[in-house]
Design a protein around this nucleic acid. Structure first.
Length: 572
RNA sequence: AGGGGCGUAGCCGAGGGGAUAAGGCGGCGGACUUCUAAUCCGCAGAUCGUAGGUUCAAGUCCUACCGUCCCUACCA
């Protein structure tokens, strides 16, 4: 077993090229365009300075000088490029031997150098006055998928949630329920939606009656004073909201190691701030508010940490929560999955934490907003894509498709299959975009099972399964690797080799979309191979070679999909 | 107004300074008596927002401008 990546090639080249270090060489090595059947390329331009020759001559000379190692099938000098093709046996052997661990080949082959970390991931931090919407869906899918990727890589991951369960927005839905709810219970209505209905009700009524906000403020005051009736109502409505959230989390396969509640500690952050004031790290303004100066050293706007009336604001609690999470999990790194509208806020939070000596590794996984063709989603106006609705729509559409293909299938099986396909479509659709970019969700056009979709990847997996089932040959490594020399096969093998590198880049850059993008390329290449190469054949040696190849494709698809939280299907 | 992000075909969108700028949707034309057509093959469609600059090489780096979104709360 041997990992072949840019670093391997760099180390190899370093034996002949002495003007550059291994690291420099590694950064120069690139992956050739799709239509070139070589795994890695080294452009020789940079050597021209030393060699004083035309690049194409340098490449040719270098090729002559290099001795082909056992893990390379071929080196080609083409124009100013030196191209390397990794040995087919090495790649397929790695995959077949490691199976579901293939993405961890580096950790496995370099055991002593891997340092597992304790990582806390906080998401999706909902407000308990309304149900989860499409923005939360993106948040949950990113948070959950990143958790799985890091855990796959051997880190100890703790998923935690912060419930924003107090404040004026909560009191708004409480007030509406008090005034117009007639003490009703959710019953058939999903309980978080039931709560959300009152939030919308409040917003509608507020337009007619501008004094309504004063009543909500009064309710907030009562809540803060601990008025028993208000607290009882709050408790009841919050439990409805949270119960509803839990049902939704379950659909996404999310479970938390710990749930935090803002109401438990919103009063507790003050000590840290007052301590900082006493140490002279923070300043008290004339009106009594405590602020931190961030312009020097951080080039950020100053930030209020405690109101002039001594009450805490969001950052007060977030500072406290950082310590609390450290106490609970003794983590090495803390990741916050929060939308990019809070980029500045997180820069400020991390700066303050650093100033007060809380030096643990922190990362804000920032993602772009989802909007609708009509514009921004607004819960208050009810113009949101609801998380539960979108799941149901996906399931229904998947059911129709399953039903069309397998009308005689047992209803329970149809449902189960539709659920897996529908969820794959949703997850893949959201995760295939670069997390950083905003995107417009067009409900009419976005829901599709054709083209670049989750079902497309699942279909590819099922097709392979079907071939394997039809063949009578055994799959093992005892094949003639030279038989895999069709253009489509070489492209597929080349792509398979990149997978562990892709996972490494995802972990380093948090670019989760690279996994869906990779899977799309792999499956497109497989389907193209499928169109021009028959696996089951009279030529049993060829059949066995191709079976191993497609088995390896299947293994990689499964790892990739599982990292995205998507299940595979053996038939569809 | 200041700060940050983004601008790639009709639409969506990948691009780790280097080879002819992926792929999907939509459009047009083909392929199921052959391993699952949720598929594949072919065609059409891009002065990569504009103008400069750095470099042997720029969609990618720098500057300015234009457009767009977000932030600039003692809200969360």
């Amino acid at each position: 077993m041997k990992i072949i990546d840019k670093k391997t090639i760099a180390e190899y080249l370093n034996t002949s090229i002495t003007n550059f270090s291994i690291e420099e060489l590694e950064s120069l090595i690139e992956i050739p365009p799709q239509n070139i059947n070589y795994s890695y390329a080294f452009p020789v331009y940079r050597l021209a300075k030393f060699e004083k020759k035309a690049p194409n001559l340098i490449a040719e000379d270098l090729k002559e000088k290099l001795v082909l190692p056992e893990y390379l099938d071929e080196i080609e000098a083409k124009g100013p490029y030196l191209n390397f093709r990794v040995n087919t046996f090495t790649i397929l052997n790695n995959i077949y031997e490691l199976n579901q661990d293939y993405g961890k080949i580096r950790e496995i082959t370099e055991k002593g150098r891997f340092n597992p970390l304790k990582i806390v991931i906080e998401y999706p931090a909902p407000n308990t006055n309304k149900p989860l919407h499409l923005g939360h869906v993106r948040n949950m899918l990113l948070g959950n998928s990143l958790s799985q990727i890091l855990a796959y890589k051997g880190h100890e991951v703790f998923q935690v949630n912060l419930n924003n369960d107090r404040g004026i927005h909560i009191c708004k839905s409480m007030l509406a329920y008090k005034k117009w709810g007639n003490n009703e219970e959710p019953k058939e209505r999903k309980s978080d939606h039931f709560v959300g209905d009152y939030y919308i009700k409040y917003s509608q009524k507020e337009e007619e009656d501008e004094n309504l906000i004063d009543e909500a403020m009064d309710l907030l005051k009562l809540w803060e004073e601990g008025d028993p009736n208000t607290r009882a109502l709050w408790k009841k409505m919050n439990s409805w909201a949270i119960k509803g959230f839990e049902e939704t989390y379950k659909k996404f396969g999310i479970s938390f190691d710990k749930e935090y509640f803002e109401s438990d500690f919103y009063l507790k952050g003050k000590n840290k701030i007052i301590g900082g004031l006493e140490e002279g790290i923070f300043e008290k303004k004339d009106d009594g508010a405590i602020i931190v100066r961030l312009n020097e050293g951080y080039n950020l706007p100053d930030k209020v940490l405690l109101r002039s009336d001594g009450t805490s604001i969001y950052i007060t609690q977030d500072i406290y929560l950082a310590y609390l999470k450290k106490e609970d999990f003794d983590y090495d790194e803390s990741i916050y999955v929060v939308g990019n509208e809070q980029d500045l806020y997180f820069k400020q939070l991390f700066a303050v934490l650093e100033i007060i000596g809380f030096k643990e590794q922190k990362y804000h996984l920032s993602y772009g907003m989802i909007s609708l063709p009509e514009g921004k989603m607004k819960s208050r106006e009810g113009t949101v894509i609801d998380a539960d609705d979108i799941i149901e729509q996906m399931n229904n559409l998947a059911y129709k498709e399953v039903n069309k293909r397998y009308p005689s299938l047992d209803k329970g099986k149809k449902n189960k299959r539709a659920e897996i396909i529908g969820m794959a479509a949703l997850r893949f659709f959201i995760l295939k975009f670069n997390p950083k970019s905003d995107f417009v969700f067009n409900p009419k056009e976005s829901i599709s099972f054709e083209g670049e979709t989750g079902p497309y990847i699942q279909y590819c997996y099922a097709r392979i399964e079907s071939i394997i089932n039809k063949s009578n040959e055994k799959i093992d490594l005892n094949i003639n690797f030279k038989l895999l020399n069709h253009e489509k096969e070489l492209i597929l093998i080349k792509q398979l080799n990149y997978f562990p590198e892709i996972i490494d880049i995802v972990v380093k850059t948090y670019g989760i979309h690279l996994i869906p993008q990779y899977l799309l390329s792999l499956c497109q290449e497989f389907n193209s191979f499928y169109g021009s190469c028959q696996v089951i054949s009279e030529d049993k040696d060829l059949e066995r070679a191709r079976l191993l190849l497609i088995k390896c494709v299947q293994i990689v698809i499964k790892i990739g999909l599982n990292l995205l939280g998507i299940e595979t299907l053996e038939e569809m």
